[in-house]
Structures are given as structure tokens and as C-alpha cells.
Design a protein around this nucleic acid. Structure first.
Lengths: 203, 203
DNA sequence: TTTATTAACTTTACACCGTTAAGTAAAAGA
DNA sequence: TCTTTTACTTAACGGTGTAAAGTTAATAAA
């Protein structure tokens, strides 16, 4: 049955073409300014073809956010596993920041934009988010077991750390650093991260 | 010349009517889902009338974000002025969080949404933002003068603190706490804030 | 008081948007 | 060869922001 296989392959390729085209336009122009019609035109297909592969615009961009989570997780996995817990925790913070700066579009989709959240979540999408989240919570637990963060609630602590890096990144991505000179942004961002790391060290 | 005065008054009232109607719809439905036509219909005027008072949708919502900044500044001003610097700093964090929780729509407009940023900034709008920002930087300087945060760069430190509260708030507003149970959100948020305060105390 | 001007608002229109339903043509199966 | 299925397109609906032209009533000038 070679035909069925070929058809399945073609379907996957079409899906892939849509995703790649959507990614390209989205990374250039953002969610709101990327229309289904734009994507279709860039693909040289009619707009409604996309709807044969994705339920609606949200679902299409939710699929992109899943890709973002896969990439994000592979970033997190780059943190050396033999580091002492506190060092590893700090390294994860740097990696988090790096991911967001390397891929602001994906970060937006994953953690800021409301739109893709409205679509039905696949098991894989949810799982990837949970896996990434547990990278953080488990390293926090290791730090606590190693004698750090005495008496603190690990969930609250993990959330506190995550909130900080998310805040830094969100300012960056949503362009709310206009009261600082452009050339200051970098040292401000990384300086803040290092101060935060120093703060954690003293806990 | 009573007529000119009356006309000016009427113009102000119309502007006010637009702003109030836009506020109401925006707070209920958010920026994207509030259309110029919706606002006009709620006012019982034609859509294009709004354009006689505001250049475009961004400018209208930028005016709203200015109102947000006025409110925000009055929130910050509620922090007791006779508190020791560190206590005052922590109190400002709580107030910041309270503002965002009380007025998530305004917070979105002011610190997250890209759209209103695209419009031309008035002197007043910019000044209000700067004034609020300097509330933070000056209290940080006071803390440093009082012997806290030894050897740290005050700008980086202020940015670090701001990033943290912004992160907490942004997770809340953009609904990224789905991996936690609803009833946990409150203790997570305030717990994180208190851990952060404790961390700062030890610096 | 009549006429001309200006200001405030509306109607119409354009070019976009996401999305659905109906139509078409080619490929696959019988 | 005929029928069915698949993959895609065309046409259309109701929405969007916004510019241009048209209207009407209030004001100023005669």
C-alpha cells in the first residue's frame, strides 16, 4: 500500500509548509500582523487550505508554541548536569534569558500572548510545559536538600525565581525599557540577573 | 464670549464620553476585542466621530494608559513616607501588586500591550512614567545610603526589583498559572513576594 | 433678518481580517 | 469505465480600522 503512505507523507509536508511559512511571517511581524491570508499567499495556496490542516488561527499558532516548548526544553537540557545545584540553578536562569533573547517570537507565543492559549491543548503541548516547569522545581528541591533556602516553601520559591526571569524577559520583549538608553539595556538585564543570583547565594 | 467656552466644555465632555465608554468596554473585553465600532455604538454615535477626537485606536488607548499612570502614581503615593527605606521599598512592592490586581486592564495597557506604545507620546504621559520610575530608584538610593545593598549598582538593582514584581503580575494577568490549582494562585503570588522581601532584607 | 461660513457629526466606501459553505477537478478504488 | 473520495479553490458573510465626502445645524457677517 504505497499510495496511502505517500498521501500521509504529503499531508505531513503540507502541514510542515504551513508551519514554516507561519513561523517566518510571525517572527517578522508578530501574531496580530500575520494573517491567514498572508500565510496562504506566501505559500502560494488559497487561504482556506490552511483550515484543512488547522482548526483556526489560534490552533495554528498553538502548534508553533509547542515547537517553542520543544526548543525551550532543549535549551534547558544544555545546562551541565554535574554542576552543584545552586550553580545549575543560576545557569538555568542564564539559559532562560538566552532562549528569550534568541527567540523572542517563540517566547511571546509561549508565555505572553493570550491568543494561542485559547485553543484546545494537546497532551504533548501540556506535557512539554510541565516537563520544563519541573526542571525548575526539581533543581530548587535539590538546592533545598543541599542546605539552601532554609525553611522556605519550594513552590513559592520556584515561582519567585521564575517570575523574576519572566519579568526581565517580558520588559525586553514588550519594549518597556525606553527610559533607559539603548546601550544600557544589556548591562541592565545581565546586571539584574547577576544581582539576583548573588541574592540567592546568600539565602 | 460664553459660546466659545461652552463649545470647549462640550468638546471636553465628548472626549470624556469616548474615554469612559472605551474604558468600560476595554476593561470588560480587552484591547483586541474592543472595536471602534463597539465604542461608537455604546455611545450612540457614528464610528468616525471618535476620529475627530483621537487620531486612531492606538492613540485612544494610549490616553487610557495615561489615566492608568495617574492612578498608578496615586497608588504609589499611598506608601507611608515616614517608613524606614527598606520597609518602604517592600511596601511599594505590595502596592504595585495591588494596583495590578485591582486594575489588570490598566496594567496591561501600561506595561504589556504593544499597541498603545506605538502612538505618539505626550509630555504628560512620559512624565508620569518617569515620575513613577523615580519613586523606585530614589527609594533604592535611600536604602543604599542607609547601608543596604552594599556595592551594588543601583540602576541594576532597581531594575531587578521591578522585573520581579512585573513578572509576578504578568503571569497573573496573562493567565500563565494553569499548572497550579486556582486556589494556590494567591498564596503563590504573595508567598513569592514575601520570599523576595526576605531575600532583599539579607542584602 | 437674511445670507455665508464654520463646526460637528454621519454616510459611504476601501481594503483588510478570520472563517464557512459550496463548487471543482484530479486521483484512487471498484 | 464508472464512482467515490481527496485536495484544493471560489465565493461569500460579517467583522475590522480608517479616510473622504456629504449633511445639517449653529454661529458670524451682511
Amino acid at each position: 500500500m504505497g499510495i496511502a503512505e505517500r498521501k500521509e507523507r504529503e499531508k505531513k509536508e503540507m502541514r510542515e509548509l504551513i508551519l514554516r511559512t507561519a513561523t517566518k511571517l510571525f517572527m517578522e511581524n508578530g501574531y496580530e500582523k500575520t494573517s491567514m491570508r498572508n500565510i496562504a499567499e506566501a505559500m502560494e495556496y488559497s487561504p482556506t487550505t490552511i483550515y484543512l490542516y488547522f482548526k483556526d488561527k489560534n490552533e495554528l499558532f498553538y502548534a508553533l508554541s509547542e515547537e517553542g516548548f520543544r526548543m525551550f526544553f532543549s535549551y534547558l537540557s544544555q545546562a551541565p548536569k554535574d554542576l552543584p545545584p545552586m550553580e545549575r540553578l543560576k545557569e538555568l536562569g542564564r539559559i532562560y534569558l538566552k532562549f528569550a533573547i534568541d527567540h523572542p517570537g517563540y517566547y511571546d507565543l509561549m508565555f505572553i500572548l493570550r491568543a494561542p492559549m485559547e485553543s484546545h491543548h494537546t497532551a504533548e503541548g501540556w506535557e512539554l510545559g510541565m516537563k520544563s516547569h519541573s526542571v525548575l522545581t526539581s533543581i530548587v528541591h535539590e538546592c533545598i536538600n543541599g542546605g539552601h533556602f532554609k525553611g522556605m516553601n519550594p513552590d513559592q520559591l520556584a515561582f519567585m525565581i521564575w517570575s523574576f526571569v519572566h519579568g526581565v524577559v517580558t520588559f525586553q520583549i514588550r519594549d518597556r525599557l525606553k527610559m533607559y538608553e539603548d546601550h544600557e539595556h544589556h548591562e541592565l538585564t545581565y546586571g539584574a540577573l547577576e544581582i539576583f543570583n548573588e541574592m540567592m547565594d546568600r539565602l
